[in-house]
Amino acid sequence: MEDRSDKEFVEAVRGGNIKAYEVLVLRYSARVFAVCLGILGNVCDSEDIAQESFMKALDRIQSLRDGHQFAGWVSQIARNLCRDLLKSRTRHRELLTQNRETVHPTKDDYSDLMETLEALPEEHRLPLLLYYFDGQKTESVAKALNLSRAGACTRLCRARRALRIQLEKESR
């Protein structure tokens, strides 16, 4: 089952087999969530947008030219939806601050880390979350961000460095 390619599942979905779409959801939910969290920095919103992304992708699946590109395509949909949400929230920073008490399910252990990640610019936060949420593979980062492997590697290195600097800044 897991060996079958995205293209086969996309074709099955186009043929009316919705069960096949469930497999794609299970395969890429972590990646899409990471994309959303990387952009929005807010767990609750990220869950909602990730779900919406998959439903929107299903609606538009007939327009996907190459089924192999499903992962990048659904990630792009998620990024667009996140940007729409941010645009619609002129005060989103304030909202994030207001929501902070409720959005972190692991507040006791990881709220500091989450705050540090939120403080990073998106270009650093996104590759980091993608790497750790989606199997710790540079290829996943590359695919989700439409980058070359080397490009993804560079972004990841910069992100690690930025995180380290931010953590040190906060520990002072």
Binding site: S29, F33, L37, V43, E47, M114, Y132, F133
Partner: peptide
């Protein structure tokens, strides 16, 4: 941290 987020991912699924 990513492990603790597995429940969120599972909720999305």
């Amino acid at each position: 941290f990513s492990r603790t987020m597995k429940t969120n991912v599972s909720r999305i699924e």
